[in-house]
Simulated assay, not measured.
Amino acid sequence: MLLSRLNDGPEIFFTLQGEGVSAGLPAVFVRSALCNLHCRWCDTDHTWNFEGTPWKHDKDADPAYRKHKKAEVTIEVPPQEIVARVAAHPCRRVVLTGGEPLLQQEAWLEVISGLRAIDPAYVFEVETNGTRMPSPEFRAAVNQFNVSPKLANSGMEAKLRIVPGVLEFIVSDPKAWFKFVAVNESDIVEIESLCREFKIPSERVLLMPEGRTAAELDRHAQSIVAHCLLHGWRFCDRLHVRLWGDKRGV
């Protein structure tokens, strides 16, 4: 399967989960390459913003920024090698992230079955944008879906970032949590609208401030807290940003 490349190998690392309902728990992250979306503020643009693609990104304003050479930032890794690399870590929580992991479900199922053959106690979280339908087998194998529907601030048309049938299906799964990044009041209005339209339970909504530094997170945190108190949503920080900043592999 195609993974993100970090230095000379696949982007597989042992750290703390930094976001969502499992924040603070030790976890092994496996970052897949490829994504069906192209958010302008994406902090993992190396998984999709390849040379020759037309997508725009906020980093374009930096004269030093260049689109990525796909061969330099991706690596093909057999599922059994992923199993061996993950099993080498003293942790039974695994986060399948990306990019968009649901683009490679069959390969992930091989990884999941391989690790559970070693230890049935393995727990799997999947981070997804909520636009791809999980297969019945994939849905059954995963313990937790961390769903992050994209808002208008992503720079994409609604028809690309919101797929009603898929989102309705995922909402019906009690294993799914919904994480939204908010910057301003228009984001909050959009989140409220999505929650009403798709009947997302307030107790499964997490609201997170936007930011790639602790200072940027703090700038939005107070207003985010106020909306959490009003709607019964859960406040979600970005622990990895506070601990390590905007850095890969942690």
Rank of each mutant, 00 (worst) to 15 (best):
P201M: 14
I224F: 01
H68K: 13
V183E: 11
Y65D: 09
P63A: 14
R161W: 04
K67N: 13
A27M: 04
C236Q: 04
G52N: 09
V86C: 08
R139E: 15
P79W: 06
L2M: 10
G52Q: 07
A33L: 10
F169G: 03
N129M: 06
F138L: 08
V250E: 09
E110C: 10
F178N: 07
E110Q: 14
K179M: 07
L207D: 02
N49I: 05
A221H: 08
V111P: 00
E168S: 12
V95N: 03
H57D: 15
A107M: 14
G165M: 01
C91R: 07
T74I: 14
D237A: 07
G9K: 06
D246T: 09
V181Q: 02
D45I: 04
I112G: 01
T74R: 07
L243P: 10
P90Y: 13
E190T: 09
Y122Q: 01
F169M: 02
E11R: 06
V166N: 01
T44I: 07
L229V: 04
A84Q: 13
H227I: 14
P79M: 11
C236L: 05
V94W: 04
D246N: 15
F14D: 10
P63C: 13
L151Y: 03
E125S: 05
I191P: 01
L115G: 04
H227Q: 15
P90E: 13
V77W: 10
V225K: 08
E127I: 12
L217T: 03
H46C: 11
K150Q: 13
W48M: 08
L160E: 05
S223F: 08
E197G: 08
K150T: 15
T213Q: 09
S202G: 04
P26Q: 05
H220W: 11
V189R: 10
K199D: 15
P10H: 02
I170A: 10
R219K: 15
R5Y: 03
L2K: 13
E72I: 09
S172K: 05
G165Y: 05
S202C: 12
P54T: 07
P209R: 00
T97P: 13
M133K: 15
E203C: 15
I200F: 10
P54R: 02
F14H: 14
R116G: 03
K56R: 13
R161E: 12
F178S: 11
F124A: 02
F50C: 01
F235N: 02
I224P: 00
I112M: 05
I224N: 01
Q80K: 12
D58P: 03
L160K: 07
I112P: 01
F138R: 03
G114A: 11
N129K: 07
S193R: 12
R242S: 09
